[in-house]
Design a protein around this nucleic acid. Structure first.
Lengths: 188, 188
DNA sequence: GTCTATAATTCGATAGAC
DNA sequence: GTCTATCGAATTATAGAC
């Protein structure tokens, strides 16, 4: 594949990533993506044969982004407590985007759960990465509760927060609830 | 409107309600609804001119269901604590459906937030009813935290629970987390 | 690799006969 | 009230010239 072709492909994935997040997977058409990526409609199929293939690439990209982010936390912070706090702060710092479009993982999983059960497995992987990573951190914290359950509990909180933030668009909500979440981590 | 016409209309709304929940609003077509309700495609437009109108009727139906349910709690239980516990138990008792399709309010709101901002206002009303009712119950509980924030916090928990239940389909998750939620209510 | 033209289907929605 | 026929737009996708 030539340099230009690779660049085109990457641009398509970036654009599709944004559109799937902001408009949803089913509501983003080939035309939408092609136009935004400035690729002629006909030529588009040279890069991706089906919408499912695009989603696969988008999720791969998101997965490596998540993994590199978590690896960064591990490199930068030694204590599991600090790492968990960073996870919560990441959520707090994305408040504006979350208010607008919800959680990229949560909204995608919910959408695909409804009608595209096959694709949903891929989307779930994103949650798995966070879930496993958080479980390891809680395990290292050596709490009396089970680390798996604490990790899941934290995911429940952040997902619920994303849903209610998206629904009510209240900038105070994410601030307040993430503050409480951090307090909860200290209390463990 | 004749008896038969009224019956047809109600059946359309019931079917649409189910389809919007299980498949999503955008993924449910006129054809889907008409076929499931056994109304000929052409005749369908006698009852509803647009899909938005159907959604409006579906939300009206859901709203009155929610209101009657909450009114039932108020009639049956005197203490605000008991009423809040019933709200949590309702969630727990719907575990199977939640695992399959998520929360009917949450998934609809998230879907409409993405591309149908106008319709989203209607869907938000469902949350408003719960939110206001819960706020009143927490106010009557006379806690030291603000009742509005407690109500929102409980909604955050249930919505996050719905997202993670739908994602992982773990029957234990809802049981465990609702148990914790009830404990939280007792601790207030 | 690029691009045009277009197939094939589905969508929401309408007109009008009965 | 019922039903047929159909429109126009949008959808995913393909064939084939350049």
């Amino acid at each position: 594949m030539s340099n230009k072709a690779t660049a085109n492909r990457n641009r398509i994935v970036d654009i599709a990533d944004q559109l799937f997040y902001s408009k949803g997977f089913n509501q983003s058409s080939f035309t939408d993506i092609a136009e935004a990526a400035d690729i002629p409609r006909g030529n588009f199929y040279y890069y991706f044969k089906t919408k499912d293939e695009i989603l696969e690439s988008v999720i791969d990209k998101r997965l490596s982004y998540i993994k590199s982010k978590l690896a960064g936390y591990e490199a930068q912070y030694d204590s599991p407590q600090e790492r968990i706090l960073k996870f919560i702060e990441m959520f707090r710092d994305d408040a504006e985007t979350l208010n607008l479009h919800g959680c990229p993982m949560g909204t995608l999983n919910m959408e695909l759960s409804k009608t595209q059960h096959e694709l949903r497995g891929m989307a779930k992987q994103m949650f798995d990465v966070y879930r496993n990573w958080l479980t390891e951190q809680f395990r290292a914290l050596n709490t009396k509760s089970k680390p798996e359950e604490l990790a899941m509990h934290l995911l429940v909180q952040t997902q619920g927060l994303a849903v209610m933030a998206q629904t009510y668009n209240d900038p105070e909500l994410i601030k307040r609830e993430t503050r409480e979440l951090k307090r909860w981590v200290f209390s463990l």
